[in-house]
Design a protein around this nucleic acid. Structure first.
Lengths: 205, 205
DNA sequence: ATTAAAAAATGAACACTGTTCAAAAAATAT
DNA sequence: ATATTTTTTGAACAGTGTTCATTTTTTAAT
């Protein structure tokens, strides 16, 4: 019985080792430039082994995308100590932008790359819980703001989606290099001027 | 002299034929599922010929991305007849969203896919004029609104970037399938409820 | 009309990709 | 020490973007 437990642990450990190697390569050379052979080489295993632990490349990308959401959760934890929902909403915007600018490759994988969603669709038992939970946290805060008399005339779902779209839009334009002709053409500007404008907008709503 | 002119025309015609074939395949099976061989087959030429007319795949994607901006221009033309800048800004938002939802594969190529930007960087003589011009049209309208007393306390560049980010964010989340857990989970909802919320927001600014 | 020169089109070949799977190696149980 | 199960392997396959010597076609000159 003990050996079976150990084996299960070892199996899990090797799975994590593959993910760790994959993440390392993603960060230093980009997602698209990383191959299964690269990952196998990185951790000194053969390609075949990688396929024992992951159905295909999308499975690796999906698991890594989930790890990204755990990391985003780490950025978010201290937010929930903030009592005032408007203050929390402000800081939530900053934290989201900061995470995206400091972990752009992971953000890309979590919110832009198609592969993780394709994996979810192919397995089709589970929904995109990571996304639903994150959006849920935003909605909860927006609701508290509305309960306190803010955002009159807006519906909860719609306004929450707008706020998400606004910050995601900035991140997406920056990460996929569409800010070349705009003055907002680097991560620092997004985090200062972009965030500043975000503050002005939610104040007026 | 006449033959040289005809040859130049024929060269251009074949180039357009390749782009036309590429676009057809993109729309019916997606960008990532379309190969150079597919394109060559589609127009009854060999792979080699494609490479005579285009440096590489990114060059095709870039030219197709430019065609997308021409098409977006077509959607935009009637906007400039609108005198009232606020009314123009409202309709501009709707037109942008409509273009994105009706031509999602082209929108993806224009504003999300990396390849066209990589091509611009590799040639490095030209900037992303398509993007700068489109953003310029938005900025011009926002400026007229500000001249009419709207959007007090905002800077032109920053607010224009926010408006772009807001509508682009919606499109990007929808096109890259991140709206599964949200009620805004199809193109029609974006175009009705999403646009409605966009109207509410710019009215309050 | 024949021939030489230039231009255009070709597709086999190369190095790479994700993926599979019979065989080998290692670990476990008897 | 042997048999069984589990784990790991890497060659092989079908596909990708890309190149380039060769062939075909077109043009220009005689």
């Amino acid at each position: 019985m003990s050996t079976a437990e150990r084996k299960a642990r070892e199996k899990e450990a090797l799975k994590m080792l593959i993910l760790k190697g994959a993440k390392k390569l993603f960060l230093e050379r980009g997602i698209e430039q990383t191959t299964i052979r690269n990952i196998a080489d990185e951790i000194d295993y053969s390609v075949g082994t990688v396929y024992v632990y992951f159905k295909d490349k999308n499975a690796i990308l999906h698991d890594l995308h989930s790890i990204g959401f755990q990391e985003l959760g780490g950025y978010f934890t201290e937010l929930f100590a903030i009592k005032d929902p408007m203050e929390r909403l402000r800081k939530m915007g900053f934290t989201y932008l900061k995470f995206a600018m400091e972990n752009s490759e992971m953000y890309d994988l979590m919110f832009i790359v198609k592969a993780p969603m394709e994996f979810i669709e192919s397995t089709e038992k589970e929904a995109w819980n990571e996304g639903a939970d994150t959006f849920g946290a935003l909605k909860k805060t927006v609701k508290e703001c509305m309960d306190n008399g803010h955002f009159e005339g807006h519906s909860l779902e719609a306004l929450s989606f707008m706020i998400w779209s606004l910050v995601h839009g900035m991140c997406c334009l920056e990460i996929r290099q569409r800010t070349k002709g705009v003055k907002f053409s680097n991560p620092d500007t997004i985090l200062s001027d972009g965030y500043n404008e975000y503050l002005k907008i939610i104040k007026k709503l």
